[in-house]
Design a protein around this nucleic acid. Structure first.
Lengths: 108, 108
DNA sequence: TTTTAATATAGCAATATTACGATATAGTTT
DNA sequence: AAACTATATCGTAATATTGCTATATTAAAA
């Protein structure tokens, strides 16, 4: 197959999985970390930073944007990208809950 | 291609990406949530819970285990699975830092 | 208006993932 | 030992992802 059976899972489960999936590639983690370092930048800056071609970086940016992890603002002919905190908050909250619940459990 | 250029990124970046990737599928999120609900269980319980065949569930469990997100203890002929808090702590810490840094930044 | 700059999209090849049926493995029960 | 239970592994088909070159798009600059 290759296709996930998304329809069998809850909306929340699919949401978390989608966000996690977007972070499931080292290049996209590197992009997030670069944005964290420089606050905001344009696609070309990332191309200069990473060992990837411009279309590849553009594609990774698209996926991060679709997942809500970054925002992009048009500034002239360039696009200014930066981290979208909101979605990271969702993740943090989700994992905090897992940890909180697990703390009270005994593992086999 | 299809292969990630893992060698170009830091160990930490690859580590986070690997963990996130393991969570990047709704079935694996569903497994985590089920474990959270029942504390611990065997593979067969998950097979009864999810609309997936036994080998598929087994494969998902393997990936979660490889990523360090769950632990498996042999109990007779069954294997008792439960959440491994440690790895979730790594993620939570990583995202907390991103949020903390981003809070002091101005987005474009 | 032509050129330059910055991104995005199309198309493609290589590889990875997902899911399952069939089967193997390992422990338990009878 | 034979049957049963629980899980893992093999093999495979369908689909998704990754990364690139070539090209399109859009806006600024000359």
């Amino acid at each position: 197959m290759g296709a996930s059976k998304t329809e069998h899972f809850t909306e929340k489960q699919n949401q978390i999985a989608t966000i996690a999936k977007a972070l499931g590639h080292p290049a996209r983690i590197a992009i997030i970390e670069y944005l964290l370092k420089v606050n905001e930048c344009i696609c070309g800056d990332i191309v200069n930073e990473l060992p990837l071609a411009q279309p590849t970086v553009s594609q990774h940016l698209k996926e991060l944007k679709n997942a809500g992890l970054i925002k992009g603002n048009i500034e002239g002919n360039a696009i200014c990208y930066c981290i979208d905190e909101t979605t990271f908050d969702v993740l943090k909250g989700y994992f905090s809950n897992i940890i909180a619940v697990t703390k009270n459990q005994k593992c086999c």
